[in-house]
Design a protein around this nucleic acid. Structure first.
Lengths: 214, 214
DNA sequence: GGCAGTATTAGACCGGGTGTCTAGTTTTTG
DNA sequence: CAAAAACTAGACACCCGGTCTAATACTGCC
């Protein structure tokens, strides 16, 4: 089951040659990538750094070369995930070829497909860590909170587009609605993991859209 | 900082006298109690059994006398929590002195106060474990899922009462709404832990009630 | 060619924890 | 007074945590 990297490029010991192939130049990036895959599944505290290092075939000794501590690594992961997700949100929610509410629907569908692809083992990194908060370095709190704030704003923009196009009533408070969406959405993701089904996502989404008609 | 139980009842070694005081007769109960307090805060996998044992001054060696494994202990905790919570739900939601929707509001307020009392460190055991699912014994899945099912039904009953008293439209599907409530509610709890505030709970609740007017 | 400096990693440090079980002590039962 | 029951001490046998120092292999400059 393991052996994510079956072939072992076998690192040499000293400083690597500058030239060709710079095969490990983006080791840092690879670590982040692997970290995301693992932490979205298992959270922060249950996962050791060498589990991650092993999965990308980076020697344990190297870790401190790339990150100054596990905490710093975690922060980098949150940033990377937030960034990745913000892009994804924008790709869906700012796509002017599609009616605003449909954009949101598409995003939700895509999220469900994403979860299904990983057999509902992976969730949302930010949600995972939020849940673990009491085990985490306090520095994570603000950071995670900020990420939600950011996602909310991106979502609110889409809702305002919907207002502009008269898809939803003009007197709704889009910021508030977006906040509401993200609060509930994380619950839906959690539940989807538990039930190993997209149904919770769908139920939640349906309710959300109904609420928009008021 | 530790020493949850400052006084040490100091257990003797062999079989305890049957007579008077049976001071440790409900050791099992104490373990469950302590387990709940700790697991609602930190989840299952991050917590070791002796952390719990120490907190109630039960020797490590005794554990297997009361539970056959950590997994069995976890199951007992889920049961205990589900039971405790079901009672609490009924106390609120079946209180016929109060209008149905107000019962639900009261429950929500109480939950917020409960979280505040523990400085937003404790969440919902079932939600916590749901989030951890990928680290848990598979046997937990159905059990947790069943607990949600149960809570949903209790909630649905209250909503039907609301229908009966014309607080909400008669054509709403109460089961569905209850499912929707619990999906989102766990998200709100998660978020409340993160923000260390009841606001997420309030925002979610408000949106929930609005939807009931449709 | 040699030497300073830089990039990278080996490998150990050290403490802690894991869940589990056996052997033993003390009581109760009959 | 023996046998069974109730309970616990303490170790077993791991595996792992995050961190850091010393060593190595390269580059760039003189």
């Amino acid at each position: 089951m393991p052996s994510d990297h079956p072939d072992k490029p076998m690192r040499r010991r000293g400083r690597p040659p500058k030239d060709s192939a710079r095969p490990y130049a983006e080791t840092r990036q690879a670590l982040i990538q692997a970290g995301l895959a693992i932490l979205t599944e298992k959270g922060y505290s249950a996962v050791g750094i060498d589990q991650i290092l092993r999965s990308v075939n980076v020697p344990k000794g190297s870790f401190y070369h790339y990150f100054k501590s596990k905490e710093a690594f975690g922060q980098a992961l949150i940033d990377a995930y937030a960034e990745y997700f913000a892009r994804k949100l924008d790709r869906f929610l700012l796509n002017t070829d599609i009616a605003p509410l449909q954009r949101l629907r598409n995003f939700i569908d895509d999220a469900g497909q994403g979860m299904a692809r990983y057999a509902f083992r992976r969730g949302c990194l930010v949600g995972n860590l939020g849940q673990e908060m009491s085990l985490l370095p306090e520095s994570f709190r603000e950071q995670l909170s900020g990420v939600f704030e950011d996602w909310q704003q991106r979502t609110a923009r889409c809702l305002r587009d919907a207002q502009a196009q008269n898809e939803i009533p003009a007197d709704l408070d889009c910021e508030h609605l977006a906040a509401w969406f993200w609060i509930g959405w994380e619950g839906a993701v959690l539940r989807a993991k538990l039930e190993a089904s997209t149904r919770p996502l769908d139920i939640f989404a349906e309710g959300f859209f109904l609420r928009l008609q008021t």
